[in-house]
Amino acid sequence: PGLLEPTSSLVRVAKSASTLGIAIEGGANTRQPIPRIVTIQRGGSAHNCGQLKVGQVILEVNGATMRGREHRDAARLIAEAFKTKERDYVDFLVTDFN
């Protein structure tokens, strides 16, 4: 995973707050075909992690690709990754290249 994305990086976000605290836009069949981070809320898990940035494109979540997923499907997948008690973190593969 990620081998074809030379500028990608894996970011592990610990569930350190009750919310993930990111806003995303985009998804299949929109102008932004892969979801992009548009906001990082102060005090959320993503902000606490310190490694996610506004403008980054989310390629994978816990190893699952975002390619071909419509916005609601991508958002649901991220929400479920944060909600599940199986892991106390969410892994994001992100790239600065849009």
């Binding site: 806003a23 102008r31 075909p33 958002a75």
Partner: peptide, 15 residues
């Protein structure tokens, strides 16, 4: 001639 984007903008979801 300039090519126009026909794809719609996306919703934004807060997670």
């Amino acid at each position: 001639r300039e090519k126009r984007l026909t794809l719609p903008p996306s919703e934004i979801t807060l997670l």
